[in-house]
Amino acid sequence: MSNQIAMAEFEALKLLAYLTASADISLFEPDLYGPFRLIDAASQLAECVLANDPGERRDFWQAIKAEIDQKKIWLMHDRPGFREFLAAMPGKVAKELAKEYLNERMEGWRVGQNPISPTFHPSSLPRFK
């Protein structure tokens, strides 16, 4: 069962400031800066989660934040590397998220309670050998 974390409303307000400011400046900045702002926001989200005790998944959040903070500035020095980094990142998150969906630990999980799709069930996922 995933941990419940309490995000302070002030932290949410700061993230809101960042996101709205990013949307504003994305109107005139180079196209690739938009993905940069999004991945930087992901780092800030990770920082917020880490500050609020993510429990057993702390290592994952720490690793994600560390990798983003290290590689995001490749935008300025290594554009192909920056694109590769962005392309690989969702796969790493998916690996962790899949544990939630496919793990028996999801106590109380029932069809109809899935916030993504009311008819979706993990058992319906194809299994690849």
């Binding site: 700061k14 400031a17 960042y18 400011a21 400046i25 702002r37 930087d40 500035i73």
Partner: peptide, 8 residues
Amino acid sequence: RSFSPGML
């Protein structure tokens, strides 16, 4: 800084 995404 909250409104300056370029301020890393």
